[in-house]
Structure formats: C-alpha cells, structure tokens
C-alpha cells in the first residue's frame, strides 16, 4: 500500500494519501483502517480522514505520539505500508436531523471532518467548534469551514480564536439555539467534558472512542469499552457510541496500560532518529 502524497499539517501531524483502491471503494464516514508499517511493527488503528474512490486513495492524518506514529510520519511518498486493513468499524449514520454541532479537539478534526462533510452534504445545518492547544496545532480549519455554516475556533492559550476550551463555545451554542445532535471527537477528557454539558442540557451526543486495538476485527476483545453498563468491542460495535452512556474513566485507564513499555520503545527509537521534518517546526 503505497504512499502517493504527504504533507505536514502541523508540528508532528502529517497527512498521507495512500493507494488502497479496495478500501477507497468501500470507505464511509466513521470507518478506520488498521495499518502495520513493517514486519516488526504493531497493528495500529487510524481513521480514514478522507477518500477518493476515483483515484483509489484514502487519506490518513497521523499525529506522532510514540514509536509507531513516529515511524509512519517519517515515511515518504513511494514507500509502502506492509499492510492496510479496512475499512473497519460501523459507518456513521448520515441522516438529515436538523442542526448538528461538531466539536473537534486537536487531532479529532481528522475523524470529525468526513462526518460533518457528509452531514453538510445531506442538508443539515452544521456548526463546527474546532479547538487545539495552540495556533500551530489547529488542523483542517479551511476544510471544516467549507463544510459548515458556522466555524468557531478556540485555543487553550488564546493564540488563535477564542481563549479557552471548546466546552465554552459548546455550552454557548447549545444555550443559544436548538441543536439536534452533537458529535464530539478528541482526547478522552475533552469528550468527557463535552458530554457533561450535553447530558446536563439533554442533547444527543455521539463520540468516537479510541480504545487500544490489535486486530480491529472483533477477534481479540482488547478494545472493550463500557457503554450503558455493557461491554462493547470498540472496533466492530463502534468506534462511534452514545457519548452520554460511555464510561470515560475506564477508557482512560485502559489507554494507559502499556505506557511504560510505550515510552521505552519510543525512547529507544528516538535515539539517533531524525523523524519527519515537521517535528522541527
């Protein structure tokens, strides 16, 4: 599966266009892939951030957070993944529901984009709230602007847009007008915080969960998440779930189980490695 194009969206955030005709033919918003870089690599899940059926390509947006993502982001066009499996997961239902607010935290913009694009094209009124720690980490701003009726941007440090967390404009919008559905995608604490507000205001909320996965096909059960008191397999039952029912505390703990080993692998790898040029930014 060859990489045909690459660009850096932000420091340590890379966009890859990958040749994968079979996957492109089937991809829907909400789908993801599981990739393996080489023969020693682990299998990791990545959202299909966009797809082009005619060109037979899918777009991945990857943030370097550890060894696997560092190695992937250091790849250049012409190089290939050992394996790309997909499309995986249950597609996000695209319907005309009325007004939808999409909230993205950091890299969450990547999975959010195909969903709001489809919802926008399906005739919904779409409001997007895009947040990041600081200005350079805002990604897909223009793409999201193009598929929304209103775009609100917030940064934690105030270097762009509103100063503060996405939850502030979220509450404001929900108190301002009737919203039929909220989609919140980003780090677990951010999704958790959004759901606290929507639960209080009783607004349907969908989140996309990023449990630790192995196969991505329902075979290992490692991606278990608790939703409404029931155990679900994130890779086949999700990754989108009713945010008001998700046990976020459990998900956060499960994401951390391998942190010591992950740090060890990352450090050993960084030793003497250059990585993608965008890291320097």
């Amino acid at each position: 599966m060859e990489i045909v194009a690459k660009d850096c969206l932000a420091p340590r955030i890379v966009r890859l266009v990958v040749k994968a005709p079979r996957i492109a033919a089937k991809a829907q918003p909400g789908h993801f892939v599981v990739v393996r870089l080489n023969d020693r690599a682990e299998r990791i899940p990545l959202t299909i951030a966009d797809f082009d059926r005619a060109a037979g390509t899918i777009t991945l947006i990857i943030q370097e957070v550890g060894k696997s993502t560092a190695m992937i982001n250091a790849m250049e066009p012409g190089q290939s993944f050992a394996d790309v499996l997909g499309p995986l997961g249950t597609p996000y239902p695209i319907e005309k529901v009325g007004t939808v607010v999409g909230v993205a935290g950091g890299l969450g913009a990547a999975p959010l984009y195909p969903k709001v694009k489809a919802l926008y094209e399906a005739g919904n009124r779409v409001i997007v709230i895009l947040g990041a720690q600081r200005r350079e980490l805002l990604i897909l701003m223009e793409e999201l602007r193009a598929v929304s009726h209103e775009l609100i941007v917030a940064t934690d440090d105030g270097s762009y847009g509103e100063h503060g967390l996405v939850t502030v404009p979220l509450r404001r919008v929900l108190e301002r007008e009737k919203v039929d559905e909220v989609i919140a995608i980003g780090p677990v604490p951010m999704m958790d915080a959004c759901c606290r507000i929507t639960r209080e205001l009783n607004v349907k909320t969908v989140v996309s969960l990023n449990a630790v996965m192995v196969d991505g096909t329902g075979m290992c059960g490692g991606c278990r998440v608790t939703v409404g008191g029931q155990s679900k397999f994130c890779c086949v039952d999700g990754p989108a779930f009713d945010g008001l029912q998700v046990d976020f505390a459990e998900l956060r703990q499960r994401q951390r189980y391998y942190n010591a080993q992950e740090r060890e692998a990352y450090q050993a790898h960084q030793h003497g490695m250059e990585g993608c040029r965008c890291r320097a930014k």
Partner: peptide, 21 residues
Amino acid sequence: NEFLTRVNLMKAYRFPEYDTP
C-alpha cells in the same frame, strides 16, 4: 485470543525488538 495473538502473531515475547507489548 488477545493474549495469544499479541504473543504469537505479533511476537510480543520479543518486545521491544517487535513493537507489540
């Protein structure tokens, strides 16, 4: 399944030479 897949298929018994923990 998960445990054996990590160890057999993904070769976690050879971590960190292999990436899966």
